[in-house]
Amino acid sequence: MVKPLILVTMGTNDYPFNRLYNYIKQDPLFKSDSCDWFIQYGACELADKPQSGQVHQLIPRADMEALIKRAALVISHCGIGSLNLVLQYRKQVIFVPRVQKHGEFSDDHQLQIASKITNRRMKVVMPGDKFPSLDLEQIKAEAPQTEPVDITNYDLARIINYKLTA
């Protein structure tokens, strides 16, 4: 039987995000063989690897999209690229916004967009919040979502096209 995949993405930027890495490696599932992990760690200082799965510093967007399709749970920084993909594939997500005071970004703009995430299947771990325990049964029960929903705003695209070409 194929094990459920937990995908962790820290985006393409050059700031480390060790806090998120510390959260996930403290979860019992990190050292369990009951699920696969894929960790895109970016500028993180990666020390421990999960019991089962892979770690990569950076992967092309097409590969990330393929992993998102397969993932039963996505754990992500609060970047717009990641947000776009998980919305397209209607995934169960835990977002952890990067914050400036921990040297995770040059400012706190990820907190701004995090405050706008109201999706019921997306948890946001704000600074000071406890990272939730991962529930294997809930992860296993996740129905596969492999077909994307088109979430492009064509009204804006029409205006941009007009502004560029009229």
């Binding site: 985006g11 690229g81 776009n84 064509y154 096209n161 070409t165």
Partner: peptide
Amino acid sequence: ILVIASAGGHLTQAICATSLVK
């Protein structure tokens, strides 16, 4: 049309926003 966008979220938005450019 020359599109300038950093990799990641900026590029994702640029792809969406230019989706009707022929």
